[in-house]
Amino acid sequence: CHSECLGNCSQPDDPTKCVACRNFYLDGRCVETCPPPYYHFQDWRCVNFSFCQDLHHKCKNSRRQGCHQYVIHNNKCIPECPSGYTMNSSNLLCTPCLGPCPKVCHLLEGEKTIDSVTSAQELRGCTVINGSLIINIRGGNNLAAELEANLGLIEEISGYLKIRRSYALVSLSFFRKLRLIRGETLEIGNYSFYALDNQNLRQLWDWSKHNLTITQGKLFFHYNPKLCLSEIHKMEEVSGTKGRQERNDIALKTNGDQASCENELLKFSYIRTSFDKILLRWEPYWPPDFRDLLGFMLFYKEAPYQNVTEFDGQDACGSNSWTVVDIDPPLRSNDPKSQNHPGWLMRGLKPWTQYAIFVKTLVTFSDERRTYGAKSDIIYVQTDATNPSVPLDPISVSNSSSQIILKWKPPSDPNGNITHYLVFWERQAEDSELFELDYCLKGLKLPSRTWSPPFESEDSQKHNQSEYEDSAGECCSCPKTDSQILKELEESSFRKTFEDYLHNVVFVPRKT
């Protein structure tokens, strides 16, 4: 048989008469490798580009789960590009990614509803959504962080984005990388972005840091009482949809009607710091009717980097990364020049730590249904340095008659930039024990000054392991946590139920 035959053949030295091919099969003959313009397919066939392209389009058009959109890589027609490569849609070739590779997620039936953290986790790592997304989240724990972890990498949506009755959302900033909504599939009414009845939605994105392009379709905003109209108009300008909307697409009466839409800028007039305090004062603000001013709200939190936005980490279910302080308005003076500047002394802060701070007014709604208010920009203030805590785990070892090696770990709280350490030492008198000992005694162990690591005695271990207080009263049991108490109650309830079950099964009433 021919060298490319495997198993047997019907005619000697003829690659077209093989029972099976050793390498690849091409047009009725066995070959060692697939010549151009053919590609290896499933490690035994040679196919042309049209064959591989037909497989790709067949799966793409069917949208069946589990099928493969075949691509070409290293002269092979394979189910998908290997790690580190992405497909070129024009020629199906796998090309190296520039940075992290995109991950295209194809949605069944063309859309997916995100109504819980669990459903959001199914899209973790996706960068391109081939379909439409509907966000409908009523509640949950730590929602802002969970949504950002699972949806934060999405850069492109081919269909539309719909935010509907998501009472738990305060902001859409968890879509931190969303840059493009194509609108290839539109919501009824030709809408590519749809926001309806979101009672706590206050911000779409921080438009000073976020760009969003909507290729096709219109915007729809109705019944978002805490979303200011200025935020919607800003989205029109940034996304390129200005002029597409009709009169009733953006409701003037049901958007922002319960919001404090600040239209003035508060400026800080005085800032002073110490290692654990920050004193702030800002310019006074009074609405047209000074009785509408209820006070100020001061927001602050630790910020290692200057990239904080107002609604980071917030949701309507209680999660809030900001510390909020309510401040009463100052006494009002008739003389504008003698107006008191409101302020606040922030206490209990960490030394040498940068804080993000902003302040906003708290006002009631005027009778004319106009909203007044003022808010400052987010500023960054760093507390002063102070003395560091003591170095940890000092170790001293003498390696000769004239040297001592000293080692330690950095302090747990540096409280500033540590530039150097101060080492103090003092000579001590020799131990009298060394002169009084009889060095001729056998088995004498000389006193040693070398360091030995501390260890816990058996008594201390027994005390720590004991669940009861000892007789001397030195140790006591740790208080039980809520989960331990709940577990004990469940076990007790189970024992009672099981005992009742045994009584009912074992003891049967005697027939009379």
Rank of each mutant, 00 (worst) to 15 (best):
L298S: 01
R291S: 14
C261Y: 03
S376T: 13
G183P: 02
N263K: 09
T213N: 07
E109K: 15
Q403T: 06
Q354E: 05
L107V: 09
S119F: 04
A145E: 08
Q199R: 14
E368R: 14
T273C: 13
A385L: 03
Y223L: 11
K234I: 07
L133E: 00
L172K: 00
D328G: 12
H106K: 09
S333R: 09
I181G: 00
W282Q: 10
A145T: 15
C105K: 03
I181H: 00
L229V: 15
D377G: 12
Q339V: 11
T254N: 09
A303M: 05
P336S: 08
P410T: 06
D393L: 08
I214F: 15
D312G: 06
A251S: 08
G183V: 01
L169W: 02
K407L: 07
F175I: 08
E148T: 13
L107T: 13
L219G: 04
Y305H: 11
N141V: 13
K301A: 05
T361S: 14
P342N: 12
G139N: 11
L186Y: 07
K177S: 13
C228V: 05
G240P: 05
W344N: 14
Y167Q: 14
T113R: 03
Q403G: 06
R281L: 07
L196W: 15
S173N: 12
N307F: 04
I163Q: 00
S274Q: 05
G256Y: 06
F311P: 13
E302D: 09
S158K: 06
K234V: 12
K177Q: 11
S173F: 09
A195E: 00
E246D: 14
Q245Y: 12
N387H: 14
V397I: 09
L252A: 07
T361Y: 15
E368V: 15
P351F: 06
R247H: 07
D367N: 05
S321A: 07
E262C: 13
Y355K: 00
K177D: 12
V104G: 05
L280V: 15
L349V: 03
G159R: 02
Q121N: 13
W352M: 13
T113V: 14
P304A: 14
S338W: 14
P287C: 10
Y372D: 07
L108W: 13
E231C: 09
S166M: 11
E122T: 05
E146T: 06
Q339T: 08
G313A: 12
L161A: 05
Y223Q: 03
G313D: 15
N141F: 06
D312F: 08
K350Q: 14
G152T: 01
D289M: 07
V359Y: 03
L204T: 10
K242I: 12
L133W: 00
E148W: 01
I357C: 14
K350N: 04
T185R: 07
K350T: 06
L293S: 04
E246I: 06
T323I: 14
K360M: 07
G159I: 00
K267E: 08
Q121S: 05
L204F: 10
C126T: 01
V363P: 10
L147H: 03
I181L: 10
T213K: 04
K253L: 09
T386Q: 04
N141G: 14
R272V: 01
D115V: 02
A356V: 02
D393E: 09
L133I: 02
S269M: 05
K218M: 01
L279I: 11
E148K: 06
L345H: 03
E111V: 05
A251P: 10
K301N: 13
P304K: 04
P288V: 09
Y167L: 15
M297Q: 02
L279F: 13
L392I: 09
T353P: 00
W352N: 03
S402N: 14
W408V: 04
H222Y: 05
I157Y: 00
T323D: 03
E187L: 07
S398N: 11
T215Q: 07
N320Y: 15
A303V: 13
I163M: 12
N224Q: 07
T309Q: 08
K162S: 14
E237A: 08
L293N: 06
Y223R: 09
I405G: 06
F174C: 14
L196I: 13
E155N: 03
K267N: 12
E184S: 12
W352S: 08
R138T: 03
D328S: 05
D289I: 02
L147P: 01
T185C: 02
D326N: 15
D315T: 04
R165L: 04
P388L: 02
F358T: 08
F311M: 09
C228S: 15
L229P: 02
L392T: 04
S192G: 14
S401D: 08
L123P: 01
N387Y: 02
L298V: 04
G189W: 03
K277T: 06
V238R: 11
E231S: 04
L266H: 01
L265C: 05
R247A: 09
S321T: 11
R244Q: 11
Q216F: 12
L178R: 00
N334W: 10
D276M: 14
G131I: 00
W286T: 08
Y194L: 08
T273M: 14
G343T: 04
R138V: 05
W408A: 00
S389I: 00
M346Y: 01
E122L: 11
P329A: 11
S158V: 11
D377L: 01
L186F: 05
D393H: 12
L265G: 05
N200T: 02
F175D: 00
W207M: 13
Y160N: 06
N340W: 09
Q199G: 06
S166Q: 04
Q121Y: 01
S166W: 00
Q203L: 05
L392Y: 05
F290Y: 14
E310F: 10
S398F: 02
L392Q: 07
V381F: 02
W205F: 12
P284E: 15
T353I: 15
L201E: 15
F175H: 01
M235R: 00
E236Q: 15
R247W: 13
S192M: 02
R179P: 00
W205L: 03
E184Q: 02
K234H: 15
I357R: 00
E122I: 02
S239Y: 06
F311A: 11
K409R: 14
Q121K: 10
R370K: 12
R179W: 05
R244S: 04
Y285N: 13
L349P: 01
S119G: 08
K177H: 13
I250D: 14
F275L: 09
T361P: 03
L133Y: 01
V128T: 10
M346Q: 05
I163K: 04
C126N: 01
E262T: 04
E187P: 09
L294T: 10
Q199C: 03
F174A: 09
Q354I: 14
N150S: 09
N150M: 10
K162Q: 15
E310S: 15
F290N: 03
T127V: 03
M346F: 07
W322L: 04
S260H: 09
T118I: 03
I188H: 10
G183C: 00
S319Q: 14
K103N: 02
N399Y: 09
E187T: 07
Q382K: 10
V170L: 14
Q245M: 15
Q216N: 03
E146M: 08
D197R: 07
F174N: 01
S239E: 06
V104Y: 10
T309P: 01
E236K: 14
D335N: 05
E262P: 06
L280Y: 01
N248W: 05
A168I: 12
D249A: 05
G189V: 13
G140H: 08
C126Y: 02
R370N: 12
S208Y: 10
R164H: 05
A168S: 00
Y305L: 07
D292E: 15
P288S: 08
G159K: 01
E148G: 05
N320S: 08
I395L: 15
V359L: 12
G318S: 13
E184I: 08
K209Q: 11
Q339G: 12
K226I: 11
S321Y: 04
W322Y: 14
K162E: 03
F268L: 03
I157R: 00
D206L: 13
L265Q: 14
Q382F: 03
V128I: 07
E264H: 05
A259T: 11
L133D: 00
N130C: 01
E264A: 05
L169M: 06
A316Y: 12
K162G: 15
R179V: 06
I405W: 03
K409P: 06
S269H: 15
L212Y: 02
S208T: 06
S171L: 01
L345K: 04
R370A: 02
W205K: 11
W344C: 10
L107G: 04
E109Q: 04
L392D: 02
N263I: 12
F358S: 14
T273S: 08
P411S: 14
